[in-house]
Amino acid sequence: MFEGMNMGDLGKMLEEVQQKAKELEARNESIELTAKSGGGLVKVTANGKGEIIDIDIDDSLLDDKEALQILLISAINDVMKMVEDNKKSAAMSMFAGGLNPFGGGGGSQSR
């Protein structure tokens, strides 16, 4: 797989991948993803790292604990799925951008 590649090239490639990973992590900290449930009665916002950073609950739900729990669980699950999809998409675009250590390298892909 790495035949014909000298260690200097491999080291440079690994440094580039590490740099891109750091950039991706920094980018994920600034991304905000919001999921809504109950027609917007509950909104949960997470950053790209998967940390919940805000929860907004409509006052009308405060007297209905069971409905609040169901809508909160739904919104949290949805926003966590969004976070995972975002991470996968970002990782794929990083490799599509020419840092695929497993070959390919020259061609471009539409995103």
Rank of each mutant, 00 (worst) to 15 (best):
E25G: 11
K22Y: 08
E32W: 05
R27D: 09
Q69D: 14
K49W: 01
I57E: 09
E51A: 00
S30I: 11
L33N: 04
V42T: 07
E66K: 12
N28W: 13
V44Q: 09
G48S: 11
G40H: 06
I57P: 09
R27N: 12
L61Q: 08
E51H: 00
S60D: 06
S60E: 08
K36A: 13
Q69S: 15
I52G: 00
L33I: 02
S37Q: 05
N47P: 04
D63A: 04
V42H: 06
L24S: 15
Q18K: 13
L68H: 12
K65F: 12
L68V: 11
E66H: 11
V44C: 10
L62K: 12
I55G: 10
D56T: 15
E66S: 14
L33D: 04
D64Y: 01
D59M: 06
T45I: 05
E32C: 03
V17S: 00
E51T: 00
S60I: 02
D59K: 08
G39W: 03
E32S: 08
L61D: 09
R27E: 15
E29P: 07
N28K: 14
N28S: 15
Q18D: 10
D64I: 04
E29M: 10
E32Q: 13
A21G: 07
E25P: 13
V42M: 06
Q19F: 04
K20Y: 10
V44S: 10
E23F: 08
A21D: 11
K22W: 04
V44W: 13
D63I: 04
I55D: 07
K65G: 05
A35Q: 06
A46W: 05
D54G: 07
A46S: 15
S60M: 02
K22D: 13
A26H: 14
V17D: 00
A21Y: 06
E66R: 13
V17Q: 00
G38C: 02
S60F: 01
L24I: 14
G39D: 03
D63W: 02
A26N: 14
D64V: 06
G40V: 09
